[in-house]
Design a protein around this nucleic acid. Structure first.
Length: 471
RNA sequence: GGUGGCGUAGCCAAGUGGUAAGGCCAGAGUCUGCAAAACUCUUAUUCGUCGGUUCGAUUCCGACCGCCACCUCCA
């Protein structure tokens, strides 16, 4: 299994530190607003990495933080006239709700910055004690030149960094590159007591402290959006590694941007689509399919046309799976004869693993799945090229892989009197069939048309009429 | 200015030093009372442009053109 490590800019063999459990830390959102599709992309990539590792037999501990104290939260709260705490709480809950709607499994731990102040203070103190930080007017700054490897993740040279530090140079800092780990409180702002006076933590120290608290001094995989590579992740490394002397994260994964109209989707760009709005328009599986239709390290453009394509692709997949479903459970354990479809199933499984093993190539994995869908459809059409047990195997294999990607949900039936509804429709189809046999097309078409009006679509097939719900 | 990335059929998108996955759309067909849906088949002598290396390059190297991102809060 190989992962592209931003640190080395190479595909590396993935070998977890502890063979018992893989540790993953994923930078979560700053909860001052609902999350948008770009945030969703990163969260989804993390979710699929976790699912795939589990599929491959690893135990995984995933930590995804919430930054719930920050300038943006304070400012937005002031605009809205609510407390920062209240705003962060509401958006945090909304984040969990949106994630869940996208089919993202909750992380094992969702630490919040405000609940880890003591850990952060302690980490900052360690850095001060080591001479790697200094205090000015109640704020604590990290002394970047103390860390010889600074820039190793973003591959920047010190002089380039200085050139970049052209905005608002704080003259009090020893070096323009130095960043704050503790911000002295301004009047009216939320603050916590610290050895340096009242204040609040800087963004970077939050992740260092929370990652190390929940996953230890060295973690296997650290993931986040590509914008976080510098300075956020670079600073996390500087803080953590200088404090512990250990490697902070062994594999750094950065998810490329989601774009819209060719430009980055970003909150500051005002061009974002909220995940919850997208979820109101498209099924979960469609959005997931769209987000994984390109490799995670390549930019992906959001537009209605692409979503429509995913909708079509999913329809093809679902039709195939629906047709296979009736064979489910019919597999004979003693089945030994080899059939062409069995080979195709095995080929699909091994190619799926190959694709995912190579830096989680979901786009390629989808291609592999759809290749088998084509094979199945061909045999289903002739219905003499394979037997029920093999179709059952195909169903199992397909649903298993689709489940890793989260693009198929076999029990999507909404609640209510589903059974009763099904019986009612079956009755209508029966009446319609009687009318058809009398060539009473008026009655037949009336039933079809009226059902269509309530989004139930009849399809006359060789084996008789079937129906499904359309939107 | 520094750094990195991208440019593959009408559209989206994988991929490989040995001759281009998959999806959408389109066209043809099967099915059907009609329809819808579904399914099948077909669709890139070619991978931004120009050079170079090679028996052979879309894949490696160089130049150029175009687009994007990071260097400043942002997944």
């Amino acid at each position: 299994m190989k992962i592209y490590n931003s640190l080395s800019r190479q595909l590396e063999d993935f070998v977890p530190l502890n063979s018992e459990q893989v540790s993953i830390y994923s930078c979560g959102p700053t909860v001052y607003d609902y999350i948008h599709m770009g945030n969703a992309r990163t969260a989804l990539v993390t979710d699929i990495i976790r699912r795939y590792l589990v599929y491959r037999g690893y135990k995984v501990k995933l930590v995804q933080n919430l930054t719930d104290i920050d300038d943006k939260i304070i400012n937005r709260a002031a605009e809205l006239g609510v407390s920062a705490k209240q705003l962060a709480h509401e958006n945090g809950e909304a984040f969990f709700e949106d994630s869940q709607r996208l089919g993202i499994h909750p992380a094992d731990v969702h630490p919040k910055a405000t609940e880890h102040i003591p850990e952060m203070i302690s980490l900052i103190q360690t850095l001060i004690d080591k001479g790697a930080a200094y205090v000015i007017d109640g704020s604590v700054y990290y002394r970047v030149h103390q860390f010889a490897e600074y820039g190793k993740l973003s591959h920047r040279k010190p002089e380039d960094l200085l050139a970049g530090a052209r905005v608002e140079i704080d003259e009090r800092k020893e070096d323009p590159r130095d960043f704050d780990m503790w911000k002295a409180a301004k009047p009216g702002e939320p603050s916590w007591d610290s050895p340096w006076g009242k204040g609040r933590p800087g963004w970077h120290i939050e992740c260092s402290a929370m990652a190390m608290k929940h996953l230890g001094e060295t973690i296997d995989i650290h993931a986040g959006g590509e914008d976080l590579q510098f300075p956020h992740h670079e600073n996390e490394i500087a803080q953590s590694e200088l404090a512990t002397g250990c490697t902070f994260a062994r594999y750094w994964m950065h998810v490329a941007f989601l774009k819209i109209d060719g430009r980055r989707m970003g909150k500051s760009e005002q061009n974002f689509i909220l995940l919850r709005d997208a979820l109101d328009h498209y099924p979960t599986e469609v959005i997931r399919h769209f987000l994984i239709s390109a490799h995670y390290r390549h930019p992906l453009d959001y537009n209605p046309e692409s979503l429509a394509k995913s909708e079509g692709a999913l329809r093809r997949l679902n039709n195939c799976l629906d047709a296979l479903k009736k064979y489910d459970g019919q597999s004979n354990a003693s089945e030994t004869e080899t059939e062409p479809l069995q080979d195709a199933i095995q080929t699909m499984q091994s190619r799926f693993a190959d694709a995912m093993d190579t830096d989680f190539n979901t786009a390629q994995a989808l291609g592999v799945i759809f290749t088998l869908v084509g094979e199945v459809n061909r045999l289903l059409a002739t219905s003499n090229g394979a037997t029920a047990p093999v179709f059952a195997q195909a169903y199992q294999a397909l649903t298993e892989t689709c489940e890793v990607l989260g693009i198929y949900n076999s029990d999507v039936q909404d609640g209510g009197n589903v059974e009763q509804r099904d019986q009612l429709i079956a009755l209508l189809l029966e009446v319609r069939q009687e009318a058809r046999s009398r060539k009473d097309w008026d009655t037949s078409d009336k039933i079809r048309d009226r059902l269509k009006e309530i989004n139930i679509e009849i399809q006359d097939t060789r084996e008789g009429a079937t129906w499904k719900i359309v939107s």
